[in-house]
Structures are given as structure tokens and as C-alpha cells.
Write a protein that binds this DNA or RNA. Structure first.
Lengths: 180, 180
DNA sequence: TAAGTGTGTGAGTGCACACTTACAAACGAG
DNA sequence: CTCGTTTGTAAGTGTGCACTCACACACTTA
């Protein structure tokens, strides 16, 4: 008995987030995430309910990590104005997604929301983050909306690689966005 | 000779945008777009350079349609302030994507930007739209950035189906967004 | 030490799908 | 009425991949 199943599951999920982030749900074979976790494909299927169950579980950990990071950011600005707390949250998020995996996974998950189980997971994830931002920052609707709008813009910037484009339109879109 | 190849190509591209919008690049077989266009799979492969060539061509027509719509919107507010022109552009865009195909296709394309040819097509598309907005509205960088940030938020709202969610966090995110 | 339980895999199976090829029919030109 | 060209397809081919199953090893307990 080398490891407990529960420990294996978290290893697999870390690999899964990375693998799915790069190539998406349909284009990443579960052999790829098995290889990333250093175990056999067959065992992945024993640990999770099919490829879909694996992806949904990966989505859950993805949003979990984001929520934790944002909460920590809010902690650092505790007692400040809503604007200051939102700023701290944005900074924490920018730091978190420096390695791109969590950001790209969200984009991939958004693209396969035609699968109901995935749509549910994504909705639950955004519910958690949005209520967190709303409650902990004490921000009004417009501020929360702006927070997410620029977050989504950040996703576009990274997926399309706009920070590498020197042209003026790209500079306009990336101006002032932290760390993409 | 029932039809010219060129006429067939546009028929196929219309079907392709629809089909790819729903299930994405990897999950939609070219038999699906062939069926949508009412021709055989084999002929699609004669009309386009593989599935990838088909997707890239579909991306081009997608951004083409968006550019045309936005330009028409700008025309309706010609002579107004940048803010007014941007507003007209946003309205035209909201109207365009009422059927969701063009919006969902953009999300799907963004998710497969790990394929260089697709990344190039998407970048070219956004270059076209961004320069169009910048030039025709005479807007400054911050205004252009805001325009795209809320556009991306609109994509999130539609893919996740937030307009169907009655909870307060969802209302905050969808407040004032036109027609998603 | 025998039986039971949890961890792990190799070797398949079956199917979906990208792409090809060989062939046929419609049309235009001379 | 041929002959070349363009439009169109039916019927493959090969491969990649989700998922399964029989089996083996590790460890515990009685």
C-alpha cells in the first residue's frame, strides 16, 4: 500500500488542472493526466467517476484555490474601504494566476458548459467567488460587476497573448492590468 | 453542377459557426457541420483544408460579421461623443449576439488558442474590432478597455446562464448588461 | 498463515472520427 | 456528341481514446 486513495486523488487533481488547462476537456486524454500524476490510466478511472467526474472535481479544486487566495487578499486589507479591499483581492488573484493554469482552466471550463454537470460546477464556483467578493469587500453591485468584468478581460489578454502584442490596440486593452 | 464551390463555402461556414459554437472545436465532428450544410463530409474536406482550416475560416467570418455590425452601430451615432458612439456600438453588438452563436463561437475559439493557427485568427479578429472601436468612436484607451471588459463579462453571463439565476450575486453581475 | 481489504496495473475492447480514394453525375466548350 | 472540368458522394482506412477486466502486490487482522 503505497499511498491512500485520498492522497492520490489530490495528486491526480493537481495534474488534472494543469493538463485540462492546456488542452481543454475534449482534447486531453486521461492518459495525460495519469502520466502527470505518475499513475496508470486505469487507476484514475477507479479514483474518479469517468473523465467527466474527474473534470468536475478539478473544477471544484480550481475554484477552491481561487476562493482561498481571494480571501487571503481580503484579509490583508481588512478594515479598509471596499475599493481598497477589492484592490487587494485583485492583487491576490493576479498573483495566483501567474502560472496561468487556474486562469486557463476557467476558460476551458467555460467552453464546455454545454455539459450540464460542468455548467453546474462552474456556476457553483462563480457563486462562491462572487458572494465572497460581495460580502468580504462590502462592495456594491456596480463594484462587484466591474471586478469580474476586468477579471474576464484578463482572461482574454492571457489566452490571446495580448501582452506580447506591441500594437496600440493591444496596449489599450492591457493597460494597468496586473501581471497577466 | 448544382452550385458553385464558392456559394457552398459560405453555406458550410454558416453551419460551421453554429456547430462549433455549440460544442467547440474538438467535440464537433465535421460530419455535424456537413449535415448542417446539407452536404457530404467528404465534400467539406474538399472545400476546406482539413478541420482546422474550416475552423479558422469560420473564425474569420465570425469576426467579420461582428465588425460589420459594430460599424453599422457606429454609423447610427455618427457625430456623437465617444461615449455615445461606444454605447451605440455596444447596442449593435448586443443585438447581433442575441442568437448566441457568434458569442459562443468566440468563447470556443478562445479555448483552443493553444493551436497557433487559431490563436492567429483570434488575434487578428480582436485587432480588427479593437482598432475599429478605437478609430470610429475616437475613444481613449480606458474607454476601449472598459468596452471590451464588459463585453467579456457578457460572454461569462451567457455561457454560465447567469440571467437564469435569481440569486443576488448573479443579479449584481448581470445588472444593466444588454440583452444576453 | 490464511483470509480479507485496499492499492495498483497490463492488456485488451469497441467506437468515434479525421481524412482519403475511387467513382459518378452535371455542366460547358468546341 | 464527345471531352474536360467542376461538383458531389459512398465506402473505406487508420488511429486515438474512453472505459473495463482480470490479475497482482501490499498490508492488516485473527
Amino acid at each position: 500500500m503505497r499511498s491512500t486513495a485520498e492522497a492520490r486523488r489530490v495528486t491526480v487533481l493537481n495534474g488534472a488542472v494543469s493538463a485540462f488547462a492546456r488542452t481543454g476537456f475534449h482534447a486531453t486524454p486521461v492518459t495525460a493526466v495519469a502520466a502527470a500524476a505518475g499513475i496508470s490510466e486505469a487507476y484514475v478511472f477507479r479514483l474518479f467517476a469517468g473523465k467527466l467526474g474527474l473534470f468536475v472535481a478539478a473544477a471544484d479544486t480550481c475554484f477552491e484555490r481561487i476562493a482561498v487566495a481571494i480571501e487571503a487578499g481580503a484579509e490583508r486589507a481588512a478594515g479598509g474601504s471596499p475599493e481598497e479591499i477589492l484592490d487587494a483581492m485583485g492583487g491576490a488573484y493576479a498573483e495566483l494566476i501567474a502560472d496561468r493554469d487556474l486562469l486557463l482552466f476557467q476558460v476551458q471550463a467555460q467552453a464546455v458548459t454545454d455539459i450540464p454537470e460542468i455548467a453546474d460546477a462552474v456556476r457553483a464556483g462563480y457563486r462562491r467567488i462572487a458572494t465572497l467578493v460581495q460580502d468580504r469587500a462590502g462592495a456594491d453591485d456596480a463594484q462587484v460587476q466591474r471586478f469580474f468584468a476586468y477579471g474576464q478581460l484578463c482572461h482574454l489578454i492571457v489566452t490571446v497573448g495580448l501582452e506580447q502584442v506591441p500594437e496600440p490596440w493591444a496596449r489599450a486593452l492591457t493597460a494597468g492590468i496586473r501581471h497577466p
